[in-house]
């Protein structure tokens, strides 16, 4: 464990909690892409299947349980509890455009052709594109509430910190996970234009982020 990965995990947890609290307190999921949240729940489910078979550390196990619980709670709030506030016509990204290439690639590029390893690879590739429906919704509606942008900021920052973690681990322990690194870089690149908008618009106290 290193400070970059720990900071990344904290940012990830903060992002998930920000979104969950926003939906719970505003009792609404307007402006939130339910599809992205479903994809994140799938990411955690397919990545943490070794929850009961591989023990890394108490921290690792606890965080996996927390991420699974919070992501399913978020999906529950969107599609069950506050479903009447869910505007599905704005959440119109075609998930098959993401799932088909990601499934295909995880069968082609993986460390081992075993169910667990293919599912882990699938979760890594899926995570890199899971935010697409949310970013697509924002470009479609032309705006995002500031809370949603803070959520996206921490979510983007988490994987950027993981890149620093991979650089650190490469130089200190020779660790290099090519699938995770390539996918993590692609994932972070998707956030770059959002980061620019976030810094220039939201942090200047404009409240809402309105796209040009």
């Amino acid at each position: 464990m290193n400070i970059f990965r720990l900071a990344g995990d904290v940012c990830h947890l903060v992002a998930i909690i920000i979104l969950l609290l926003k939906i719970w307190r505003s009792r609404s999921c307007a402006g939130i892409s339910g599809k992205s949240q479903v994809l994140f729940a799938i990411v955690f489910t397919t990545r943490y299947l070794d929850l009961f078979t591989v023990f890394i550390s108490p921290y690792n196990t606890i965080m996996k349980v927390v991420f699974l619980a919070l992501s399913y709670a978020t999906v529950y709030l969107i599609y069950m509890r506050f479903r009447n506030t869910f505007n599905s016509e704005n959440d119109s990204f075609r998930l098959e455009f993401l799932l088909v290439p990601v499934i295909g690639l995880s069968f082609l590029e993986n460390y081992a052709f075993t169910p667990l390893e293919i599912l882990w690879t699938f979760s890594i590739f899926l995570e890199s594109v899971a935010i697409m429906p949310q970013l697509f919704m924002i470009t479609k509606t032309g705006e995002a509430e500031s809370i949603t942008t803070h959520y996206l900021f921490f979510l983007g920052l988490y994987r950027a910190l993981y890149i620093a973690n991979w650089v650190w681990r490469y130089h200190t322990e020779g660790f290099f996970d090519q699938i995770a690194v390539v996918s993590g870089v692609v994932q972070t690149i998707f956030y770059i234009d959002f980061f620019y908008l976030y810094v220039t618009k939201v942090l200047r106290g404009r409240g809402k982020m309105t796209l040009p």
């Binding site: 990545r47 070794d50 591989v54 690792n60 081992a112 882990w120 660790f175 996970d177 699938i179 995770a180």
Partner: peptide
């Protein structure tokens, strides 16, 4: 690509 023995990251 080096094959990580096990996935110790979240």
């Amino acid at each position: 690509s080096m094959e990580p023995l096990r996935h110790d990251e979240l």
